[in-house]
Amino acid sequence: MNRSLILMLIPYGCGALLLVLLPALLIFALAFTTYDGLAAPQWVGDQTFQDVRFDPVFPIAVHNTLIFVGVSLPLRVLLALGLALLLERRRRGVRFYRAAIYTPTVIPDVAYALIWLWILNPLYGPLTLALRAIGIDPPAWLVQPETALLTLVAVGLFQIGESFVVLLVGLHNIPLEYHEQAKLDGGGVWQRFRYITLPLLFPWLLLITVRDLLLLTQQSFVPAYLMTGGGPYYATTTLPMLIYAEAFDRLRFGHGAAMLLLQSLVIAVLVLVGVGLARLILWGRSV
């Protein structure tokens, strides 16, 4: 391999090393220490994990995170799939519609949170007023503990542009001949979807599912931080919120790292299980 090529790869390699691999390792080291950023870290073995186990908020945060991811994930994948199927073919105006679907995704998180805080304002918000006008008395979405977390999920559903684009690419990579042939064989819309589109789209669906699984946990932070502050009464306190508070409110970086490590392990297990299942299904079908 020539020297120029190696030179071209150096920034990428260094950057990955410094910004991803090293911090990832640092989490492991920190999780077994108590570290307040001031005094030197103290090795405490699994004491941090013991403390985390008895933290009364930790199970709540885990529960909230699982709900957030568990509800968001299927809805986001299904919505992206539905929209991609609808807007797959070339028709008049289709590009405009696609761009419109993607538009909420480009809105900065902070602006997006503010917009929804206003739209969902329980007395004056446009959505509240619009629903009232047609005779529906909406609940105070963000105020009631039962609805607050689900509201954050719903708000996030508008930002699925990236999955949508990936699925469009996936759909366009299904050879048209397959559909033509199936049509000739008398396959209906549903059958073509079931036996041609879905299997061929499966890797793409898997891709966006894994991607969401990896990112969603962290994505709960900004809306929760800006829209609800973790409340009402811990109802939207997800793991990233708790970790943030642990690190910066209480200067317990070691405990934060321990939580982060647990969080990453759970996600890793979920991804592995998901990919394993998917491979099982794929191999069971295509071989």
């Binding site: 329980p122 007395l123 105020v143 009402p232």
Partner: peptide, 8 residues
């Protein structure tokens, strides 16, 4: 109440 406080 909580709703009124959230609204304003």
């Amino acid at each position: 109440d909580a709703v009124a406080e959230q609204a304003e």
